[in-house]
Computed example of a mutant assay.
Amino acid sequence: MRRAARMRDRVGMRPREAAVPAALIIVGLATLPLINHASTVDRPVDGLAAVLVVATGSAPALRRRWPALALLATAAGASAYLLMRYPYGPILLPVAVCSYAVARGRHPRRAAVWAAPALVLLLGHVLVDGGPGIDGLIPGIAWVTVPFTLGLARRLVVEAQQRERAETERRIVDAERLRLAQEVHDVVGHGLAAIQMQADIALHLREARPAMAHEALAAISAASAEALDELRVTLAAITPSDRAPAAGLARVADLCARVRTAGVAVDLDVEGHPHPLPAAADLAAYRVVQEALTNVVKHSPHPRARVAIHHRPRGVDLRITNQTWDTAHADGFGITGMRRRVEHLGGCFAAGPAPGVFTVTATIPRDLP
């Protein structure tokens, strides 16, 4: 199939490749009588001049596959034409076309290596007896250097655009990876924190109070099942479906209930009318509450927390507090992720200790940027 595609591409390129040489030949032959009439000092045009115009104008057909060879061929043809003292004319246009193609299609150093001998060939007629002399250097050089510069500029622009496009794609991929990593961290971290606490309880009470150890094991089973279900929902976001509802503030009560089974007393206060939030804002609010409670389970010496949710017409305010003795604090991956989520939506986030408490606050707007 790839071979067939390449054959189709080659067949499709032939008309486009032939259009430019055909135009150059037509223009060159059509203008020969005109320049012959206008010139009084050059050799009159004849059949040989027409042959050179056709040969030189045909060489640009090779410019896409062999641009260097095409440039040398056009320079040699134009130089032979001018050495025979035929009048200046459009026979120099193929040289300009191929000079542009070399600079456009080859690395600048390699292009310059091929352009230099082509320029020498083209300027051969300048220094011969009866030629235009030094005065003809600048026009001769311009037929190569000007299109070469334009082709090089075009190549640099295209390469810059390709680098920018690749960098944009890389940033998109990195952002998506970070988003998925944050989602998995929040889901798995919350579930593992609850499982770890219940496992510690089971180990501590397995001999003294087997009944409570059994309850702890049952809670571990329930927490792991819920974490797996939420992880499936999160991963399903890669290929969205309607099979499972996405996490949101409507599920905060269930979240608090799961945390209570892990041994943390959670007080939930909801104020205001719960206006529907955009999906991204609703999920971010849920993840902030989830991660804050997970940190309580993992780090707080006091297994108690208070979750306050205040619905406002323009957004929602979140406040999660718990007692703590530790005043030292450094943002970890969880808090950094919460801040990134909220600020990405145009909201405000803060987390840190105060005398006797640790507080997480977030304001998430209803109108997203």
Results as ranks from 00 to 15, higher is better:
Gln182Gly: 15
Arg43Thr: 11
Thr168Val: 04
Met13Trp: 03
Pro21Glu: 14
Cys256Thr: 13
Gly337Thr: 09
Arg341Ile: 06
Gly105Cys: 00
Thr321Phe: 00
His310Tyr: 00
Tyr286Phe: 15
Val120Asn: 05
Leu48Ala: 13
Val360Glu: 00
Val233Gln: 11
Ala73Gly: 03
Arg243Trp: 10
Gly105Ala: 10
Ala22Gly: 13
Pro87Val: 12
Leu32Ala: 13
His299Asp: 14
Ala216Lys: 05
Ala5Leu: 09
Arg10Gly: 02
Arg179Asn: 09
His204Phe: 01
Asp267Trp: 01
Arg312Gly: 12
Ala247Gly: 09
Phe358Ala: 01
Asp135Met: 14
Thr31Phe: 13
Ser58Asp: 02
Arg3Ala: 10
Ala61Trp: 15
Asp174Thr: 11
Asn322Phe: 08
Ala211Ser: 13
Val126Gln: 13
Thr363Gln: 13
His37Gly: 05
Glu291Cys: 08
Met197His: 12
Arg16Glu: 01
Pro15Leu: 11
Ala76Lys: 04
Gly89Phe: 05
Ser224Arg: 11
Thr321Ile: 03
Ala103Gly: 12
Ile335Asp: 08
Asp174Gln: 12
Arg64Tyr: 03
Val95Ser: 04
Thr31Leu: 15
Leu34Thr: 11
Gly140Asn: 04
Arg340Trp: 11
Asp331Gly: 01
Val54Ala: 11
Ser79Phe: 03
Asp367Phe: 06
Ala246Gly: 15
Phe148Asp: 01
Val126Cys: 12
Asp254Arg: 11
Pro87Phe: 10
Pro33Ile: 05
Val27Tyr: 04
Ala292Val: 06
Glu230Ile: 02
His311Tyr: 14
Val357Asp: 01
Val45Arg: 03
Pro278Gln: 06
Ala50Trp: 10
Leu277Ala: 02
Ala330Asn: 00
Leu217Cys: 10
Leu119Pro: 03
Gly248Gln: 08
